[in-house]
Write a protein that binds this DNA or RNA. Structure first.
Lengths: 202, 202
DNA sequence: ACCTGAACACCGTTCAAGT
DNA sequence: ACCTGAACACCGTTCAAGT
């Protein structure tokens, strides 16, 4: 066999990531395997190792795509500029809706383990930081005088908080009745936090 | 072969769960397998199916133990009664410390997937609800007149929030420098939320 | 140079057969 | 009745060998 290259490295990479996304989205992350990905794109599992270090590396790159899409969804929200508190609320809802629409990819993003010795690559962490930046931007509008260290802390606390509500409701551990209830929880968290925060400022 | 029963069903179950916990705690959830558990307790993988439905069922029961220990750690905190806000803060810190002390078991608890068709058993959800109850109790002390529906919502929002900060910092996705910073985020979340909440009441 | 296919060391799960 | 051990259908990863 050993077919002549139909695809360039880059094309192969993209095809593999597309296939991986499809499998995860349709069948859950548990169902993902190198053999299935390879079969989807008409290759053998071994070929994937020409393009990826291993399955963990491949998953990391699927997660990078998900993160990018998430960021775009959040960006689209902040671009419709309104009052900062409303924008933060809208960001929370967009976050929840994104997680619902792409449950399996979203779970893979947050539940995938790297081996104990490896930590997340820098480009990954800076992509996460970018999304936090959107919240920071709104907090700055809300309280222009505040030190950026404080702004950063509040953005992380708030966004970590929203994330927690989203995880627990999506994994069925919060016993929430439906999307409406989850959104109410997010609203409550953001609303009272910001209220307390602004009181603290004056 | 076919050794006469050295252990009762119940003993076998406990031994298997002990072994599973040990493997997860020491090597991470990725390393857990029926074959390893069986080898640890001197049995064959097949024997586990006399006591557990399958590996998912076994993991669920490991998670039940973790949940029980978590609840005990939180209980111990509320028992040292002080002012409600301080108690809630102490609960947040206890939650974070528990997660740090038992990272791998804690991750298993929150990252384990059941097959798509199955949802979490009721006893599991009511165990989660019990821990939320501790927060509700403190919120009630803080605002005795409030409707229990509102109390419940705030307890979930707050605890979901704390959970999110803990997950993101433990999985290295918040880019927090260390335990101190994570605790500051939790403190910030709880403090400003409660401040806003109490303002809303008056 | 590109890719295969076989091999290796693992999985979860089932179940006839042994004691 | 209790447990094994072999079997089945899967894994991720490597690498000599084919084109």
């Amino acid at each position: 066999m050993a077919r002549r290259s139909q695809y360039t490295r880059e094309e192969l990479r993209e095809k593999a990531l597309d296939a991986a996304e499809k499998i995860v989205a349709e069948q859950g992350s548990e169902a993902l395997s190198t053999r299935k990905i390879a079969a989807c794109i008409g290759y053998t599992a071994g070929s994937l190792y020409l393009v990826f270090e291993n399955l963990d590396d491949l998953i990391l790159q699927v997660n990078a795509r998900t993160l990018r899409r998430l960021h775009q969804a959040l960006r689209a929200t902040t671009d419709q500029v309104t009052a900062p508190e409303q924008t933060i609320q809208a960001l929370g809802m967009a976050y929840y809706e994104f997680a619902c629409r792409h449950v399996n990819l979203w779970r893979l993003l947050f539940e995938h383990h790297l081996p104990d010795d490896q930590s997340l690559p820098d480009w990954f962490r800076s992509q996460v930081a970018e999304s936090f930046g959107l919240v920071e931007g709104q907090l700055k509008r809300l309280s222009p005088g505040m030190e950026s260290e404080q702004i950063q802390r509040s953005a992380r606390a708030l966004w970590g908080g929203v994330h927690g509500i989203v995880v627990l409701s999506i994994t069925g551990k919060l016993d929430v009745a439906g999307a409406d209830e989850a959104k109410q929880l997010i609203h409550s968290l953001l609303h009272y936090y910001l209220q307390g925060w602004l009181v603290g400022i004056e």
